[in-house]
Amino acid sequence: MILLEVNNLQKSFDGSAVLKNISFSMEPGQVLAIIGSSGSGKTTLLRCLNFLETPDAGEIIVKGQKLLGGASEEQIRKNRLHFGLVFQNFNLFPQYTALENITLAPSLLGLGSKQELRDNAMRLLEQVGLRQKADFYPYQLSGGQQQRIAIARALALRPEVLCFDEPTSALDPELTGEVLRVIRGLKNKDNTMIVVTHEMEFARSVADVVIYMADGVIEEMGTPEEVFEHPRSEKTKAFLRGAASVL
């Protein structure tokens, strides 16, 4: 069964193509890791999936339902709810507590009673290991804790595909582990996820499928073993050598 299908997605900014004919598909429960150097189009791809950017051409199909073409703001808002997005810089709402950050969107969408939403949020906080921080404001939390709250906030809307845009890039090295552990835990609960990451070891161990992007195209796609151990493209080989030499 196919959950998400992306066909020939294209996007350019000021005449320079950032995404060129991106196509891939995902099955439910799969984890897709997207790797590649800066400027390769990874983040733009995630932003297109979340309708923060409007693709110039191509299709996004979730459960057989085509999402592109809905030009109205209302339609775009509905489209977005199929996806969740965890940002590089968390983007928690500073004036709300951790708990309120999680319950705000579900309550505006009328997804349940106040008590139900609260209980659900507490369960999510438990899941990311921050139940005791429910009433803390973002500035009172470490970067890693803020990112875990941001993950819980995205999960509260039960997106079909949860996207992560370099979720550990803004964190101190000692804080990346706790965030990656949470994402790993989500995989075990059969969440479908797309993770744009620079953490090669993490991509290798968690992903079912790895995509290496370069210059707006999918240069290499396959299982972690195929991409990391037996890359076919020269570009992928060069990139992996570069990434390895950093480590």
């Binding site: 923060l52 808002r77 983007n91 709402f93 969107a105 969408l109």
Partner: peptide
């Protein structure tokens, strides 16, 4: 206000007014 605040609201399905 950082644009990330707006985008966080957007991906959570909020309307412009919200």
């Amino acid at each position: 206000i950082p644009v990330g605040q707006l985008e966080a609201g957007q991906v959570l399905g909020m309307t412009r007014g919200q």
